[in-house]
Design a protein around this nucleic acid. Structure first.
Lengths: 237, 237, 237, 237
DNA sequence: GATGAATGAGGATTCATTCAT
DNA sequence: TATGAATGAATCCTCATTCAT
């Protein structure tokens, strides 16, 4: 944040210029084919480096090196380090939607809670294990009291997703409370994910079950009886 | 702890020895007094800087500056940056025990679950709000998949505490499972704490209640009926 | 050598490959040109600083300053201080071989001892006077009892050279003894060089003669009579 | 040299003041008994540290720590780091004279060359092995072209000693030449000593013999026949 | 677009030396 | 005297970012 100065403005200006004709909003800069490839290459490298070392410890030079390009090239596509994280977040989010998300929202609302948790969490866990950078980006900058940062599209989006799903299950809760519950769930999920990813094999599975139990027991008493009657079966013997 | 201030410890021991025989009070360790004050001052500064920026982004120079001393002075008392974190962890842990911990463990085992959660969490939350550095130190080095680091006396200690308390409530669970549950609880607490500290006033209170609800609902079904009969009353209406 | 400029080497290889097919001359590696020049510049600066102050007292910042570049630039080409010494050693060794070394070994074996000493030592002394850093690098890290260090390619190479030549003159000595004699000679040479370089003009010449006398008298009695019959003429009247 | 500033002047002034009454030259400051003990303690520590790490790498704090005193105490007796080396040099030189030197000069002049070398070198080598700091101090500051430094009382004294002995063996050489030969011998001895101290057991003995051979062969042809008739016997078979 | 050289402030740490007690 | 706290410049090295080609 403090470290990106004028370049940001420039980058923004460039975008504005490129998209100015259509009047469409800024995000997807028009880039030539070669540019797209480079960007993919760089985002892949960034994912590896962020995933391996975290955001702060990742150096832009390391990302460029991992991508096999020069630092200058990296900065031709990203105005600064944070922009890489932002774009990587977008990219992973898109990949996530493409991979599992098509029927994500719609279907789950009809499931009983325990099935919904399985249906929601399993692919998400899988995705995070396959893309540790996603986990990294879901966590804000980790400084307590400063939970959200600029590159938290991932954070914001995922939280919104949780909230949306949740709203379907808790139709009679006031929105503020739904938000609060969603926030809790999302944080429980994130930290649970850390534990899960820190283990392997059967231990990992056990922690996955444990996290589902936590969430199930937390949510179940809030859900009106008619909404998914069978949900109580598994986790509350 | 073991690596920091070995010289000081020696010096202290010598002083103690010298004054022990005569029973004379503080005088001859007056030398130490300034040092002791500096250490307190440095730890205070470190707490501020760690709390404000996190461990990694905190620079030793910034800590020294915050303490109003030169970098060299800092290194007269701490061999390196991590030692500062370790010592600060020890210090906060001690302060924590002194402030709330005297009757911490013993009393709580007899409480019903909801009272125990109040008795346990409220002071801990209060302490963390007053000492954000404690929160920072409770979190490991934040890189997912590398949950524990060296300066995690705080992490280790707190986790152990949770486990101990938990064992009292879950006498019939196998140890491995107790560990797993304790791990989950501790992580839920940490991430809940982040949310709590990111809010203020009534919102903060609401999140505190929410976190307690999560934990209560998670734990309650595991506790044998005879242990804390009334515990079900509050959070599961 | 192995640790420095790996990236550069890669880059060079890529360039070479790119231009190799077409047979086109230098153009596409123009990028490298600046870098190559900087490296030469930095090595020159390092030679000056090492030569003036010795390895330990030489600071990387001083070398960068002497080269007229920023510290960062230096570290773009060398991973650390020692690598500078290693590379400088390689460089000087190469220069030495290119300048005097072509016929170095082959020819000398046929010379009588005194001529061989002249032929061997004179250019070496000259080279050292012109490149004091070479002298610095020939000396290990100077702490007695720890004669060899890592950047001692120069040390090792020169000692090997002495040993090889010597073996030709002492065909009937066991290898271990040849090694020992070579070690003695090399150390005598190094310390003689210090004396020589500490003097100038006629005094310097006198010390050069003196060192040759020492070595001649030391070696001559060991050489079989048939090997260099006339060798006794000069220094042992 | 460059690092000691005003303190030197102060120290000098203090000395002058202390000895001003008697008008005697400066060196031996009047020190109380306790002071003498401290100085001995500090010099012992300095010898250990210099011997272990060399002059440059030795830190005054390390010396103080090794002596079990505070840095401030060290600076109460020595104005700066170099003064420690100077005083340690004096001290070792004195110890050397006391141990082996009583009859050092006088007796040796009558010996044949090879016996003289044994008589001279053996104790010196022994002393150096027992006091590596002596070796360290005998070497100047190691930067070629700057052979002598300030703390080289040891260097100067030992060189003078060599020269004196040598003069007895080479009565018909002009003084300048004797000086030159002495310089060569001393440097050969110093570098030979490094090799010797870098080895152990039989290898060390072999190097000792080798060094004596070098010196013997160097000197023997210069000595008038009547001076030490039997000297040729051993090393020139 | 791509390159890689260049920057320079900043990071952790050390050390000779001084000063208040 | 002795202490040990205090200093601050200097050390090696890193990194986000810029610039000339």
């Amino acid at each position: 944040m403090s470290q990106s100065r004028a370049a940001d403005a420039e980058g923004a200006a460039k975008d504005a210029g490129a998209t100015g004709k259509t009047g469409a909003p800024a995000k997807p800069r028009r880039r030539q084919a070669r540019g797209e490839a480079r960007i993919a290459q760089l985002l892949k490298a960034a994912a590896d480096v962020f995933g391996a070392t975290g955001y702060t410890a990742a150096s832009t030079n390391a990302i460029a090196r991992e991508a096999g390009v020069s630092p200058g090239t990296l900065y031709q596509f990203f105005p600064n380090k944070e922009a890489i994280a932002v774009e990587l977040g977008d990219h992973l989010l898109t990949r996530w939607r493409e991979t599992y998300g098509a029927a994500f929202l719609a279907d789950h609302l009809e499931l009983p809670l325990d099935r919904m948790l399985d249906a929601t969490l399993d692919p998400l866990i899988e995705f995070n294990c396959a893309n540790p950078a996603f986990t990294v980006l879901m966590h804000g900058s980790e400084i307590p009291g400063m939970v959200t940062k600029d590159h938290d599209a991932v954070h914001v989006t995922m939280l919104g997703r949780v909230e949306t799903i949740l709203a379907g299950y808790l139709p009679d809760k006031p929105p503020a409370e739904v938000t609060r519950i969603a926030t809790m769930i999302f944080h429980i999920f994130k930290s649970g994910l850390d534990v899960i990813m820190a283990h392997e094999g059967e231990e990992r599975e056990a922690y996955i079950r444990e996290m589902k139990t936590v969430l199930h027991r937390y949510l179940e008493p809030m859900i009106p009886d008619d909404t998914a009657a069978g949900s109580r079966s598994r986790h509350t013997p």
